[in-house]
Amino acid sequence: MTDAATDLHARLAERLAALEPIQMELVDESHLHVGHAGAQGGARHFRLRIVSKQFLGLGTLARHRLVYDCVRDLMPYPIHALAIEAGTSPT
């Protein structure tokens, strides 16, 4: 990962800490999207698996909204895509 990608990964993790995750895995999958229009200009693709008690009682859409609220200003650049799996119990 480049320094810029490492910095972005750290920034994302810092923002998502607001959800007090019990478990979190954040993977940069940008290398899988080389040549994709959204990746032009260096925008990144991430996959997030996150478990938080803040998701209790919420449906998938509401969980995703909480995640997007944490990173909204980073989209669509420098983050082009964020695949989210948000749960309430560790696996």
Results as ranks from 00 to 15, higher is better:
residue 40 Q to H: 11
residue 27 V to C: 05
residue 61 L to N: 12
residue 47 R to F: 08
residue 24 M to G: 09
residue 46 F to D: 03
residue 23 Q to I: 04
residue 22 I to M: 06
residue 25 E to M: 06
residue 45 H to E: 10
residue 69 D to V: 14
residue 53 K to D: 08
residue 61 L to H: 13
residue 20 E to A: 14
residue 69 D to R: 14
residue 31 H to G: 07
residue 24 M to Y: 08
residue 43 A to T: 05
residue 27 V to F: 06
residue 63 R to L: 03
residue 51 V to E: 00
residue 23 Q to F: 09
residue 39 A to F: 00
residue 59 G to K: 13
residue 50 I to K: 02
residue 60 T to C: 11
residue 63 R to V: 01
residue 44 R to I: 05
residue 58 L to R: 15
residue 33 H to S: 02
residue 35 G to V: 10
residue 26 L to S: 05
residue 47 R to P: 03
residue 47 R to Q: 13
residue 64 H to S: 08
residue 30 S to W: 05
residue 23 Q to P: 02
residue 42 G to C: 06
residue 29 E to F: 07
residue 42 G to Y: 09
residue 26 L to C: 08
residue 25 E to P: 00
residue 55 F to A: 00
residue 61 L to D: 10
residue 57 G to C: 12
residue 34 V to P: 03
residue 30 S to Q: 10
residue 52 S to H: 04
residue 46 F to Y: 15
residue 41 G to V: 04
residue 60 T to Y: 04
residue 52 S to D: 03
residue 51 V to Q: 00
residue 64 H to N: 07
residue 65 R to G: 12
residue 49 R to N: 09
residue 57 G to A: 07
residue 52 S to R: 01
residue 34 V to E: 09
residue 67 V to R: 01
residue 43 A to Q: 05
residue 21 P to I: 02
residue 34 V to M: 08
residue 46 F to W: 10
residue 40 Q to C: 05
residue 20 E to M: 10
residue 25 E to G: 00
residue 44 R to Y: 09
residue 60 T to V: 13
residue 65 R to D: 08
residue 48 L to T: 06
residue 37 A to P: 06
residue 60 T to D: 10
residue 40 Q to T: 09
residue 47 R to L: 07
residue 51 V to S: 01
residue 59 G to Y: 11
residue 45 H to W: 15
residue 69 D to A: 14
residue 51 V to P: 03
residue 60 T to N: 09
residue 64 H to W: 13
residue 22 I to G: 01
residue 62 A to S: 15
residue 54 Q to R: 08
residue 34 V to R: 13
residue 66 L to D: 06
residue 33 H to L: 03
residue 31 H to K: 10
residue 57 G to H: 14
residue 36 H to C: 01
residue 54 Q to G: 11
residue 48 L to V: 10
residue 43 A to Y: 00
residue 55 F to N: 00
residue 69 D to Y: 13
residue 21 P to S: 06
residue 50 I to N: 01
residue 68 Y to G: 12
residue 64 H to Y: 10
residue 23 Q to N: 12
residue 60 T to W: 05
residue 47 R to N: 13
residue 30 S to P: 09
residue 34 V to Y: 00
residue 26 L to Y: 06
residue 62 A to Q: 15
residue 27 V to I: 15
residue 48 L to K: 05
residue 26 L to K: 04
residue 53 K to H: 07
residue 46 F to A: 03
residue 22 I to F: 03
